[in-house]
């Protein structure tokens, strides 16, 4: 299962830059990210090359951080590709809580990170629906 790093950020100047500086110094490479924000705070979600190390480093630096299991799926990199994948997930009864695009690719397809309620059971349905789920070590080394 792919480990996503999530951390709490106040909506204040320089906070995001600070996180990136901490990760950069520790030789952590950010592979994908998304920020969900409200008026007062944001939640930064990261896929990195070494989640365990990133988690420890961020914790040491005093951030509220957590690790969440997410899925990376392959989506045809053509118009309608994502729509098709989402239809399949819906048919399979998999509810997507949030998703964001991944920068690198494994093949000619695009990669999308999805967060679902029970990733352990969902993975089966996703695969049955004919969607390719990318493995953990593959993602980190991309």
């Amino acid at each position: 299962m792919i480990k996503q790093i999530s951390l709490f950020l106040e909506n204040k100047k320089g906070r995001l830059a600070h996180v990136c500086r901490v990760l950069g110094k520790a030789d952590i490479n950010i592979r994908a990210l998304s920020i969900a924000d409200t008026t007062d705070f944001g939640v930064l979600r990261l896929i990195v090359n070494d989640p365990r190390k990133a988690y420890d480093i961020l914790k040491e630096n005093g951030f509220a951080v957590s690790i969440t299991n997410v899925l990376a799926i392959e989506v045809a990199d053509i118009p309608g590709g994502l729509s098709c994948a989402l239809d399949k997930l819906e048919l399979a009864g998999v509810n997507v809580e949030y998703m964001y695009a991944f920068i690198g690719t494994t093949s000619q397809d695009a990669l999308v990170i999805i967060r679902v309620e029970n990733p352990e059971t969902a993975i089966e349905y996703v695969e049955k629906a004919g969607i390719k789920v990318v493995q953990e070590d593959e993602i980190y080394s991309l």
């Binding site: 409200t38 509220a64 957590s66």
Partner: peptide, 15 residues
């Protein structure tokens, strides 16, 4: 102050 125990990745949960 948010603590690790209170924090999760979902905005909905924090709100």
């Amino acid at each position: 102050e948010i603590s690790e125990a209170m924090f999760n990745d979902k905005v909905k949960g924090l709100e």
